[in-house]
Design a protein around this nucleic acid. Structure first.
Lengths: 161, 161
DNA sequence: GCAAAGCATGACGTTAACGTTAGGGTTAGC
DNA sequence: GCTAACCCTAACGTTAACGTCATGCTTTGC
């Protein structure tokens, strides 16, 4: 990590193996991107300001252009927000982890990576994933308990009938 | 419903069938109540201001006194907040529903309630409970999906090993 | 009966996550 | 090449859910 202080969380973009302009390569402006992802333009700019996303392009004049992966990333942010109740700071951490994981997979597949290094990389990646998994699992079991409680109450009400 | 406009959400307190001073009837001051429920004194006052709770007693001088049920109610609020991500407004609705359900159960057990009325009451209560259940269930299945996705990713990482 | 601890009621402050102008540049279609 | 639609940055506004005083009354233990 040798970038500047305000380095944003960047998605580890694949180096575009082969250019495929047919595969819906159309980039969206912020308006369309906002409409499709269901958040406001302001939210998109705000996420960017926090380093959560970076539109994969800009026009020569400086207008943001969003790719499909960008939109997927926004969807992920919303998911982490509404489902897990994470705040944007925590989400930044999660995304950083996931980006790191992608990096790891890239490094893993490089010829010049030694076998020992590969094992090491995988271990690190696995640890990252399992960290998030633990968080989610905790939430799930809590909700399950909540639901069980609710169901038993419903059963009691029902038994009166 | 004939109470004043700012009527708070009140728990439908049982009429204290028999006074039992031995059964930990000690009421807590706001400081102790806050400590035990894990929220701040300010939060307790704020919840009251929003009509979510009403301390079951006040000293002659006006100090709040919280009962065990009050604390349970606070715990419920926190649960709805952190687990389901509801805001205090939505929580007010849920609590109102639950209080209504308690009322219904009381009415149900009254001799002077007709059988037809009882069925009607039960139906209403059941509907209220199932409303919340649906919300929670939706959340659960969403989280389950999230978790499944995570697990498949983990499996993929693992398969590299 | 008195000091220390506890509490009440305002009222202003704070933080996260955006919303909303204001005052301009940029781009796309004709 | 021009206009309508789109977008930029900067900056102030908003809302929920409290935090934090300030000022003064209450309660409790000795």
């Amino acid at each position: 990590m040798s970038t500047s202080a305000a380095a944003p969380v960047r998605e580890a973009g694949l180096p575009a193996a082969a250019e495929r302009p047919d595969d819906r390569e159309r980039l969206l402006g912020i308006g369309a991107a906002a409409a499709r992802s269901g958040v406001s333009e302001r939210a998109l700019r705000y996420y960017q300001q926090l380093g959560l996303i970076t539109p994969s392009g800009r026009t020569p004049g400086g207008l943001r252009r969003y790719s499909q992966e960008d939109l997927a990333r926004v969807a992920r942010i919303r998911e982490l927000q509404t489902l897990l109740g994470l705040n944007l700071d925590e989400i930044a951490t999660v995304l950083r982890n996931e980006d790191r994981l992608a990096q790891i997979k890239l490094a893993y597949h490089q010829e010049r990576t030694s076998d020992a290094d590969r094992r090491e990389l995988l271990r690190e990646g696995l640890a990252l994933q399992q960290g998030l998994r633990a968080t989610v699992e905790a939430k799930r079991s809590a909700i399950e308990g909540f639901l069980a409680d609710l169901d038993s109450r419903i059963a009691r009400t029902r038994s009166l009938l």
